[in-house]
């Protein structure tokens, strides 16, 4: 075994010991509740959660449906769609605002006395997770998707903005220098040199943020800020876990799908050169599958 690996393992061991000490402190030495927890959990899953109430996927539990809408008028579908719409709006709004603020925070574009206030604004919007923003916004705006969208937008501004200005600070120096010598203004440099130069990463960050907001949007419903989480909470509180389980499955599947989609889009825009790379579907196949395909063609 080589020395580098040994050191890595030793480092991990040390961190695990440290982790145990902190954990033990957290539960104050009382590990008793772990006994039988697995049994209780599997009972909960097999008795309360399973089987899921598939009726949630039909119009059975939803009023006001016209006939023949079936699944498209189910709480699961309508709620999930609302969450996705909320995430979509919040991501686009947050991105658009962040892209205007972040050049003001990039040290290679502005003097320090501009960058610091811009960073403070973004740090403030980022310091509260969107669920806390939602709690703060529900009193003035009432329950529903509006405070949820605003909460996610706030968080997106701070979170995405930080990624954006760090990306902008990382652009190569020579286009910047050429632009400055030519006499382009700061805003011209920001919008015509720096942002296009980092566009690939900005797009990839945008996809990541959308995916993040869909995941987060499901949580926002728990406090009443719209989306599928709202229905989830409703059935959880009534103790109707079979019903809730259907929502959990839908959330899981949709998040997986968006995850894959954004992975595909990101690997597409991340392409540095224009070499054809295997599609993201291919990456799910075992590595030799691609080649065995070619071999067959060759015969």
């Amino acid at each position: 075994m080589n020395r580098g690996l040994n050191r890595l393992l030793l480092g991990i061991l040390f961190l695990l010991i440290l982790c145990y000490i902190v954990f033990d402190d957290l539960v104050q030495g009382d590990w008793g509740k772990i006994d039988g927890a697995w049994g209780r959990f599997s009972d909960f899953v097999s008795e309360d959660l399973l089987p899921p109430e598939w009726g949630m996927l039909t119009d059975a539990y939803y009023d006001g449906c016209t006939e023949d809408q079936a699944m498209f008028c189910s709480k699961a579908f309508v709620g999930m769609l609302e969450t996705i719409k909320m995430a979509f709006v919040a991501t686009i709004l947050g991105f658009s605002i962040a892209i205007l603020i972040s050049p003001l925070a990039a040290r290679n574009l502005v003097p320090i006395w501009v960058a610091v206030p811009a960073r403070i604004i973004m740090a403030m919007t980022r310091s509260l997770p969107s669920i806390v923003w939602a709690l703060l916004l529900i009193p003035p705006f009432g329950l529903g998707p509006l405070p949820g969208v605003l909460a996610m937008t706030f968080y997106t501004i701070g979170f995405l903005g930080k990624f954006q200005y760090e990306e902008m600070e990382g652009v190569r120096n020579d286009p910047l220098e050429a632009a400055r010598v030519m006499g382009l203004s700061r805003s011209e440099i920001a919008f015509n040199v720096v942002i296009p130069e980092s566009s690939n990463s900005l797009l990839s960050q945008l996809m990541f943020m959308f995916e993040y907001n869909v995941r987060h949007g499901t949580v926002l419903g728990l406090v009443g800020a719209g989306g599928i989480g709202f229905h989830l909470m409703f059935y959880m509180e009534l103790g109707l876990y079979h019903h809730a389980m259907t929502f959990l499955i839908v959330i899981f599947l949709v998040v997986m799908m968006i995850d894959l989609l954004s992975m595909g889009v990101r690997s597409f825009v991340n392409e540095e050169g224009d070499v054809k790379r295997p599609s993201w579907l291919m990456t799910l196949l075992p590595p030799n599958a691609m080649f065995s395909n070619q071999n067959q063609d060759g015969k």
Binding site: R172, D174, E177, N192, P196
Partner: peptide, 22 residues
């Protein structure tokens, strides 16, 4: 100051992801 000085750096200083036109 604006436009009077043209500069072609050693590494050209082009915006690589946009078109020649841009």
């Amino acid at each position: 100051r604006r436009g009077g000085l043209g500069y072609i750096p050693q590494r050209l200083g082009l915006v690589r992801h946009t078109s020649v036109y841009h």
